[in-house]
Write a protein that binds this DNA or RNA. Structure first.
Length: 310
DNA sequence: TCCCAGGTCCTAC
DNA sequence: GTAGGACCTGGG
């Protein structure tokens, strides 16, 4: 069977696919075994939830070997032992790290990732999944499968041509303008994501953010950092959303010398965002993107737990 | 009914 | 340059 031996490849699909970095993996049952099904580089991919060997490409309902491209998606070059070892030893992060062992930062398609995080603006995760699912079923291509109806993510040219009504039907709300604008920029080549992905972090970041390049609408610091981390694998990226802000306020304000800057703030300016991410990068190191993702998982989990108690 | 959601844009100081 | 509001819309 052409699968990957996971003994050298620490990876927990349940944690990774539910970590808010990707929105299109689905839990299902295949041959009476629990599995995840997703689309990577337009291929249908199955990941068994319990077996040791569990990554497989599926074509014509047959399990096949998967290419290096598919392996790249799972960032198999990342040595989690080394990465975790490089992170600071403070108690809170270490707890998160133990709790979410096997969390991997994926290397998703930049285009899909960009649209996904533009859709994430001011929405919760179930709603984001809904939007992406609707975009895919309405504008993607169906992949033959006997398990689930699965679609590729729509191409830039397709979304560039989509009407306002069609996009609103995908529940995009005011985001429809952003999606259409960005689709046009990518389709026309004004925004070349492959080129951007090869740039160093800071340069790539400024290319993505609207003010400087003028190339994008709906891409601020947070969305840009998510794209840089979850698709271009810039692990020095540190996306700051409301959860991470709360986490910094409650657990890291002293450590990062940010007391006066983040105190009592419900939202932050672009300048404050920059200050925080730079301090975070100094403290957490070159893999601060991993730290961010561990912390994101933990602060949300803890919040849910507190709600249940209250 | 009101509030919030992995923010960004726009406007008034 | 910075604070505050508007923004679509579904679910608690």
């Amino acid at each position: 069977l052409n699968t990957v031996d996971l003994s050298k490849f620490e990876f927990e699909p349940d944690i990774t696919f539910d970590s808010g970095q990707t929105f299109r993996w689905k839990r299902t049952i295949i041959n009476s075994e629990p599995a995840w099904v997703g689309v990577v580089r337009e291929e249908l991919i199955k990941v068994d939830r319990q077996k040791a060997e569990r990554l497989a490409s599926i074509k014509n309902n047959q399990t096949e070997n998967f290419s290096d491209e598919i392996a790249d998606y799972f960032s198999i070059g990342d040595n989690l032992r080394e990465i975790n070892g490089s992170l600071p030893k403070d108690k809170y992060l270490q707890e998160a790290l133990n709790q979410y062992r096997g969390l991997r930062i994926l290397s998703q398609d930049p285009w899909e990732c960009l649209i996904s995080f533009v859709c994430s603006i001011n929405k919760n995760i179930p709603a984001i999944k809904m939007m992406i699912e609707l975009l895919s079923t309405k504008f993607g291509t169906k992949i033959p499968s006997s398990f689930l109806p699965v679609y590729t993510f729509p191409k830039p040219s397709t979304l560039a041509k989509a009407s306002k009504m069609d996009l609103l039907a995908c529940k995009l709300g005011f985001r429809w303008r952003f999606v259409k604008f960005i689709a046009n920029q990518v389709h026309s080549g004004k925004l070349d994501l492959q080129r951007v992905s090869k740039m160093p972090y800071e340069k790539a970041r400024s290319e993505l953010i609207s003010e400087l390049s003028g190339a994008t609408l709906g891409v601020g610091p947070k969305v840009a950092d998510c794209v840089l981390l979850f698709s271009m694998h810039k692990t020095e990226s540190f996306p700051i959303d409301v959860w991470i802000l709360r986490c910094i306020q409650e657990k890291y304000a002293q450590k990062l010398h940010l007391n006066s800057i983040v105190q009592d703030k419900k939202w932050i300016t672009a300048r404050t965002y920059d200050t925080i991410r730079k301090k975070a990068s100094e403290y957490f190191g070159k893999y601060c993107g991993y730290a961010q993702q561990y912390l994101y998982m933990k602060v949300r989990q803890d919040s849910i737990r507190n709600k249940v108690q209250a």
